[in-house]
Design a protein around this nucleic acid. Structure first.
Length: 659
RNA sequence: GCCGCUUUAGCUCAGCUGGUAGAGCACCUCAUUCGUAAUGAGGGGGUCACAGGUUCGAGUCCUGUAAGCGGCACCA
C-alpha cells in the first residue's frame, strides 16, 4: 500500500501499483477525463505510470501552469513525428521544451526550408487529431541500442550508450512512432492542442560542440490556449518594435556600416546618451574611491604573451606588424595596462585596496556570426576597473562591488535576470586549492550583499572564477553586463607586488570588475528597456521648444537660451508647421518635454509644457520652467545632494556637467 | 566560423510566369501663420548590395562574394 497526501491535506491509501489515472477515477469520472499528469513529491509523472511510492500527490489538468512545459515537450515530439513522416530518412536527436516553446534537432542531408514549416505544422495538427496514445516502456540497454541502430537512428543509439549505467531506458510510443525520452508525457497527442506555431530554422551542433556534425533545429512555440498563443505573438511583435537597432535608427542615435562591422558610429544624440551614462557611472565610482587612468591603445605583443591573453585569445585580437618588424596588438582589455601602472614604482600595503578605473576603447575580433547590433560589437568601452588588494580584503571589496552594482542598476531601473558564478574552466592557470578559495569567496560576498547566485560549471575565465550579472533584452534574450572576476594569476604572471607590514614583498590579488560591462551593450539593453523614452536625466534631447506661429520665434530662441543655461539639453522647432504636426512628431520621437510657445507665452514670458505620455499642459513662467526642469534632470547620484540640505552647491553644476 | 533566410529611393515596402522601376513617409520649393498627435500643391532622388553567367533582353533565373537578420559555436 502507498499513502497519498492530497493538496487539501487529506490522506488516502492506494494499492501499490496504482496509477494516477486510478486515483483520479476513484475520485470522479470527470477528473479522470481532465487529468493529464501527476505531481508526486514535486516531480511530474505520466498519468498512466504506476506510482513508485507514496507522498504529496496532485493531479494536473491541461490548464495547470505546471503542465505547460509538458505540452511543449509533447509538441516537440509531435513535430518530430510529423517531420519523420514527411521527410523519411531524417534522424531525430533531442527535442526539449524551452522558455515559451520547444525545439527539435534533426539530422538530414537536405536542409529544411522555411516553406517546409507550414507543411510540418499541418501534419502536426493531423497527428493531434489522430489522438495517438502515448505510452511509456522500459527497454534493456543493449536492445535499445540495437533497435535504434537497426532503424538508422545513430544519434539515439549514441544517447542510449552514453546514459549512466543503471539508469532506466524509457521509450515513449506515440501511435506508430517512438522516441527515447525521459518523459513525462501527456496521455495522448490530442492534449497537445493546436495552440502552437513553428517559428524559426537554425543550425545547431550535435551536443553543442562545433567539432561535431551540424544538425538542423526547428523552433516552435506552444501554449495551452489560442488566446495565450496570440498574446505571445503579440508580445514578440511589440518587443521587436523596441529593438535597439530600430530605435537607434529612428532616434538618430548611431549607425553601423559595412566597412566597420561590429563598430559603432555614434551620432550626436547617441553620443550624448553615451556620455551621460558614462559620466554618471564615473561619478558613482569616484564616490567609492576609484581612481581613473588611461593606458595605451596599442601595445607590444609580448606584453599579451606575458599576460597569457595571447595564448588564450590571440585569435580574437587585432594584431599588426610595423615596417620595423615590431608585432603590436590593439588592446582587447585594460588589465595588463593597469598592471604596468601598478608595477611602476614600489607599492605599499597602505595603498591597498587600489581601485583603478578606465573607460578607454577596446577592440576584440569577435566572430562575424556573433555580431549583434550594440549587444555584441568589435569596438567597445567598459566601465572597467581593477582592484588590487590583499587576500583578506577580497570579500569586503567584492561585497562593496555588488552593492554598488545594485545601486546603479536601481538608478537605471534595469532588473537583473540572474547572477551566475562561473566556476573553473578546463583550460586554466593556477592550482585547484586557490580556485576553491576563490570560488567560495565570491559566493560568500555575493550572498553578503543579498544576491543569490547560480553556479555554472566550467564557465570561469582562465585566471579565475567570476560573478556574471545578466540583464534581459526586449524579447527575453539575456546578456551579460556586469562582472566581477577574482584573479590570483595575472599579478603572478606580471610579477606585481607590494611591501607589507612585515617589510617583505607580497603578491596582491586582482579583482576585474565592470558594472555596465560594455557601454555599447548596456546602452542597447537600456534603449530597449526604455523603448527610447528615457528618463529626463538620460534623454539626449530633454526639451524641444516648439513655436505655434513665427511671431514667437524670437521668444522661442530666448527660451532655448535660458533653458540651456540652466543645464538642459534643448532643441528648437521653429518650422513653419502646425503645432499639431510638431507635437505629433516630437511625441513620436519621445521627447520628454515639449515646451510650446505662441504669442500668448511670448507676451507673458511663459512656456506651456507638455510631458511625454501625457496630453495635459502646464503653463509656467520661463524661469520657473528652467529651475523646475533643471532640478528634475539632475542625475540620480546627484539628486540627493541637490535636493538635500548640506553639500548642495554641486547639484545644479552636476546637472550641467552631465550635459 | 557554421546552418538557414534576406538585400529595390534616406526609411518602410510593392514589383505575377524575364520586356528597361513604383507607393507612403522623409527631403527640397512655393503657398499657408494655423493653440497641443499628420495643411495643401509642386519637385528632386535608384549602377535594383557587389561580381560573373544564361538570354535578343535580367530587379526578376543561375553561380560566387559581402553585409544584415535568426539560431548554433565563441565571448578575456
Amino acid at each position: 500500500m502507498i499513502e497519498l497526501v492530497f493538496p487539501d491535506g487529506s490522506k488516502r491509501e492506494f494499492e501499490s501499483g496504482a496509477t494516477g489515472r486510478d486515483v483520479a477515477a476513484s475520485i470522479s469520472k470527470s477528473l479522470e477525463k481532465r487529468s493529464v499528469l501527476v505531481k508526486l513529491d514535486g516531480a511530474l509523472l505520466d498519468l498512466d505510470r504506476p506510482l513508485p511510492k507514496g507522498g504529496a500527490f496532485e493531479l494536473l489538468t491541461r490548464d495547470s501552469p505546471a503542465a505547460l512545459e509538458t505540452i511543449r515537450h509533447d509538441a516537440s515530439h509531435v513535430m518530430a513525428e510529423a517531420v519523420q513522416e514527411l521527410f523519411p530518412g531524417t534522424q531525430v536527436t533531442i527535442g526539449p521544451a524551452i522558455e515559451d516553446g520547444f525545439y527539435y534537432d534533426f539530422a538530414r542531408s537536405e536542409p529544411f526550408s522555411l516553406d517546409d514549416l507550414p507543411k510540418i505544422e499541418q501534419r502536426m495538427r493531423e497527428i493531434v487529431d489522430r489522438d495517438e496514445k502515448i505510452s511509456r516502456e522500459v527497454w534493456a540497454r543493449e536492445a535499445a541500442i540495437e533497435h535504434f541502430k537497426s532503424i538508422g537512428e545513430d544519434y539515439k543509439a549514441e544517447i542510449v550508450a552514453d546514459l549512466p549505467e543503471g539508469d532506466e531506458i524509457s521509450v515513449y510510443r506515440q501511435g506508430a512512432w517512438k522516441d527515447l525520452c525521459l518523459g513525462p508525457h501527456l496521455p495522448s497527442t490530442k492534449f497537445v492542442g493546436k495552440a502552437f506555431k513553428l517559428t524559426k530554422l537554425a543550425g545547431a551542433y550535435w551536443r553543442g560542440d562545433h567539432r561535431n556534425a551540424q544538425l538542423q533545429r526547428i523552433y516552435g512555440t506552444a501554449w495551452a490556449s489560442d488566446a495565450d498563443l496570440e498574446a505571445y505573438l503579440l508580445r514578440i511583435e511589440e518587443a521587436e518594435k523596441r529593438d535597439h537597432r530600430r530605435i537607434g535608427a529612428t532616434m538618430d542615435l548611431f549607425h553601423i556600416q559595412e566597412e566597420g562591422k561590429g563598430m559603432i558610429f555614434w551620432h550626436p544624440k547617441g553620443w550624448t546618451l553615451y556620455r551621460t551614462l558614462q559620466n554618471y557611472v564615473r561619478r558613482r565610482m569616484e564616490a567609492e574611491g576609484y581612481v581613473e587612468v588611461k593606458t595605451p591603445q596599442v601595445l607590444d605583443y609580448s606584453l599579451w604573451e606575458q599576460s597569457g591573453h595571447a595564448q588564450k585569445f590571440g585569435a580574437n585580437m587585432f594584431v599588426c606588424e610595423t615596417d620595423e618588424g615590431e608585432k603590436l596588438a590593439l588592446k582587447p582589455m585594460n588589465c595588463p595596462g593597469h598592471l604596468q601602472i601598478f608595477n611602476h614604482g614600489q607599492r605599499s600595503y597602505r595603498e591597498l585596496p587600489m581601485r583603478m578605473a578606465e573607460f578607454d576603447g577596446l577592440h576584440r575580433y569577435e566572430s562575424s556570426g556573433s555580431l549583434h547590433g550594440l549587444l555584441r560589437v568589435r569596438g567597445l568601452a567598459q566601465d572597467d576597473a581593477h582592484i588590487f588588494c590583499r587576500e583578506d580584503q577580497i570579500e569586503a571589496e567584492s561585497k562593496a562591488f555588488v552593492e554598488l552594482l545594485q545601486v546603479i542598476y536601481r538608478d537605471l531601473d534595469v532588473e537583473l535576470d540572474s547572477v551566475k558564478l562561473a566556476l573553473r574552466p578546463d583550460l586554466r592557470f593556477g592550482d585547484d586549492e586557490i580556485w576553491t578559495i576563490a570560488e567560495d569567496t565570491l559566493e560568500r560576498a555575493a550572498n553578503a550583499a543579498g544576491v543569490k547566485v547560480e553556479r555554472l560549471e566550467n564557465e570561469g575565465a582562465f585566471y579565475g572564477p567570476k560573478l556574471e550579472f545578466h540583464l534581459r533584452d526586449a524579447i527575453g534574450r539575456t546578456w551579460q553586463c556586469g562582472t566581477l572576476q577574482l584573479d590570483y594569476v595575472l599579478p603572478e604572471r606580471m610579477d606585481a607586488s607590494y611591501i607589507a607590514e612585515d617589510g617583505q614583498k607580497h603578491r596582491p590579488v586582482m579583482l576585474h570588475r565592470a558594472i555596465l560591462g560594455s557601454l555599447e551593450r548596456f546602452l542597447g539593453v537600456l534603449i530597449e528597456h526604455y523603448s527610447g523614452a528615457f528618463p529626463l536625466w538620460l534623454a539626449p534631447v530633454q526639451v524641444v521648444v516648439a513655436t505655434i506661429t513665427s511671431d514667437a520665434d524670437e521668444y522661442a530662441l530666448k527660451a532655448v537660451d535660458v533653458l540651456r543655461k540652466a543645464g538642459l539639453r534643448v532643441e528648437s522647432d521653429l518650422r513653419n508647421e502646425k503645432i499639431n504636426y510638431k507635437v505629433r512628431e516630437h511625441s513620436l520621437a519621445k521627447a520628454p518635454v515639449i515646451a510650446v510657445v505662441g504669442r500668448r507665452e511670448a507676451e507673458l514670458g511663459q512656456v506651456a509644457l507638455r510631458r511625454f505620455g501625457s496630453t495635459g499642459q502646464e503653463v509656467v513662467s520661463l524661469l520657473e520652467a528652467a529651475n523646475m526642469l533643471a532640478l528634475e534632470a539632475v542625475p540620480p547620484d546627484l539628486a540627493v545632494r541637490a535636493t538635500g540640505d548640506q553639500r548642495s552647491p554641486h547639484g545644479v553644476v552636476g546637472a550641467m556637467e552631465a550635459g
